[in-house]
């Protein structure tokens, strides 16, 4: 009896030590890289995503990404097709629903946002080589799930926080500020419904809150890898 009690207590202690184990930043990033399937991502040159963007209406959306930093999103507002894109240098958009169908260059703060969004592998991969700074600033909870909170100071000076889920080691939330009418307003992206596509984990549902209120929801139906893509689609017409 004495022996079995000792064993049980030891086991509980080991288990509690394991759950309370603190990882270093490098360890968290290594686990994140493995959970994401980074090894497989390195074999991918293009990603094509299709689905629905729900922002008042539910409208079709298509996102195309290309290494190392090209991004274009084709989406509908009021059922009129608009584009947001980054070609590696210039971020541009169209807003035909405003009555102006001509492509326009994005303002500086939105260009920075698009540059981050266009990073094919994400800001965490090879962050040192990209000139970013990443710090582990503590733990937090994202919708009741514990998460590691990382502060990223990007090479352009912009700051954002990424939350790595403690269980899956996938990104569960991104937090940054967007300038709106002269004020900084928090933008929160919640990444849900991760599924594996050819050994790489993709979030199929991304819900965005703006100023604490639900803003839009990107719900993907399909993600295809290595489709042939013409680079011209990223360039401003």
């Amino acid at each position: 009896m004495k022996k079995s009690s000792f064993l049980a207590i030891s086991l509980l202690l080991i288990m509690s030590m394991a759950t309370a184990q603190e990882f270093s930043l490098d360890e968290i990033l290594a686990k994140h890289s493995k959970a994401l399937g980074y090894e497989n991502l390195q074999k991918v040159s293009t990603v094509t995503m299709t689905g629905t963007l729900i922002q008042a209406d539910a409208m079709p959306v298509k996102i195309t990404r290309m290494r190392p930093d090209k991004f274009v999103m084709e989406f509908d507002i009021q059922d009129i097709t608009a584009w947001q894109a980054y070609d590696g240098k210039i971020a541009w958009f169209t807003a035909p629903y405003t009555g102006n169908p001509k492509p326009q260059i994005m303002p500086e703060d939105r260009t920075k946002e698009m540059k981050t969004r266009a990073d094919f592998e994400g800001v965490l991969m090879n962050w040192k080589a990209k000139g970013h700074t990443v710090e582990l600033v503590g733990k937090d909870t994202v919708e009741n799930s514990p998460a590691y909170k990382l502060k990223i100071t990007k090479n352009d000076g912009g700051v954002e926080f990424l939350f790595i889920d403690e269980g899956s080691f996938l990104i569960s939330k991104r937090l940054y500020n967007r300038i709106s009418r002269g004020k900084e307003v928090p933008m929160e992206n919640y990444f849900r419904d991760y599924r594996a596509v050819q050994g790489i984990m993709f979030s199929f549902t991304q819900d965005t809150h703006f100023g604490g209120q639900p803003y839009n929801s990107l719900q993907l139906d399909s993600i295809e890898l290595n489709n042939p893509v013409d680079e011209k689609i990223f360039q401003m017409p």
Partner: peptide, 10 residues
């Protein structure tokens, strides 16, 4: 089921 053919809003 999902309608996968066609264009624009449903």
């Amino acid at each position: 089921f999902k309608v996968t053919k066609g264009t624009k809003a449903h």
